[in-house]
Design a protein around this nucleic acid. Structure first.
Lengths: 228, 228
DNA sequence: GAGACGGCGTGACGAAAGTCACAGCGGCGC
DNA sequence: GCGCCGCTGTGACTTTCGTCACGCCGTCTC
């Protein structure tokens, strides 16, 4: 799992810190708290006071909203090198979403004061935040578009495309991230598990994917985008 | 309409520029192009090359996505003092949404190079952008939550609350912005005009609003939030 | 190996929302 | 004043989705 090209510290690949020297990175790292997480661990809850800035060292974290009756809508997944929860750090408000680990791993946590100090010491950090925010905004607009315009089958198709395991590349036969459950897809698509099962059946009928032994494979890389 | 407290130039109330002196503001204004708009005018289209940063001087602008079959989803309305289309200016990508005027007014347009110059000359501008982006992200997350969790009647109730005419204050009998059509509400709620008509009927039945002569009034300020 | 648990497949049903169709009304322009 | 157009109100029907209720299977634990 350890990347051999990683120069020093656990986050040379984090956009925020990639411009720093190894020395500076070490000093930044000193301000972070480290935490290991196991699947299901809740890192922070929406509405509570700012939990600080998080950086994923390894593993996978989901950011989601919960409805009064318990339904979950995943807003985004964060993997190694991704950071999250910038918004409350910068505007001082409560956490906008809840974060929970999906796969075991480690995260770094920078308290709000620590981040504001970093911002003072490394002005380039501010520019990086703007870039990150811009990308988040595009992502959220795309999610709104998805929820508003597309029906469930199309949303599931898009989710499968985005969950393609990067190790296997794109193309026929590519597999989806190990063990994506139907419930997880449902939380991303904003629907129920049963409806996802039916959507997958429909995609299988359209020869877009093959579901075998619980794993999903893309059979025709051209068909899936057409359906989404 | 003109604010008597406005010191100089048309945008002392724009968050970006409120920290500047009158002199600086004048110099900034010199870099903007001015444009009057009439209802229906399209300012820029999603997917096209960055149209620059816009500031609303007066009037009302809607930002929306269009689906392949012509349905519209309004992402946000922008009124006097609001700015929009920052994202492509800062990340260099295409416009994420389409913008069109809803009410007649005027906008200022800063080209991308002009904004990048401003950013260089006035570093505080960068911090302001971060604040604006944070607020946009919160707004979009709330929109996702709305689309994913609430059904149409609840969404309409929330839209009415947000469209309260600020001049009339909050409370019983407050009116909604002059002449909000059902089609406009439908575009915000991500549904069709007919469904909005029925949702309004339901809200009327719950004694939350009164619809008379095409205008919507809040009858009981306590009921509406409860339904949303 | 027995049971508990979580994920999956599917049928049946009801609720919500989208669609079509059409009629009335009011304002605006010629 | 007349006609056109856009907004509204509403009935009827269809589609999509959400939900309930199962049964099946594989894995993990004791």
């Amino acid at each position: 799992m350890e990347q051999p090209t990683r120069p020093a510290g656990p986050f040379a690949s984090v956009p925020y810190f990639s411009g720093l020297t190894d020395d500076e990175r070490a000093r930044v790292a000193a301000r972070a708290r480290r935490r290991s997480v196991r699947p299901g661990d809740v890192l922070f809850v929406e509405g509570e006071e700012c939990a600080g800035l998080f950086v994923v060292v390894s593993g996978l974290v989901k950011l989601y909203k919960t409805s009064p009756d318990g339904k979950e809508q995943v807003v985004r997944h964060m993997g190694a090198g991704d950071s999250f929860n910038e918004v409350p750090v910068f505007d001082g408000g409560p956490n906008p979403v809840t974060a929970a680990a999906v796969e075991p791993g480690e995260v770094l946590i920078f308290s709000r004061p620590a981040v504001l100090e970093l911002l003072r010491d490394y002005p380039a950090f501010g520019a990086a935040v703007v870039q990150v925010f811009a990308s988040r905004l595009r992502h959220l607009v795309a999610l709104v578009e998805d929820l508003s315009f597309r029906q469930v089958t199309a949303r599931v198709a898009r989710i499968l495309l985005q969950s393609l395991d990067p190790h296997e590349g794109i193309g026929a036969g590519a597999g989806v991230r190990a063990r994506v459950t139907q419930r997880e897809i449902a939380e991303m698509a904003g629907t129920s598990r049963e409806v996802v099962a039916r959507a997958l059946k429909a995609l299988e009928g359209a020869h877009a994917v093959e579901v075998r032994a619980g794993r999903i494979r893309i059979s025709d890389p051209a068909v899936l985008p057409a359906l989404s």
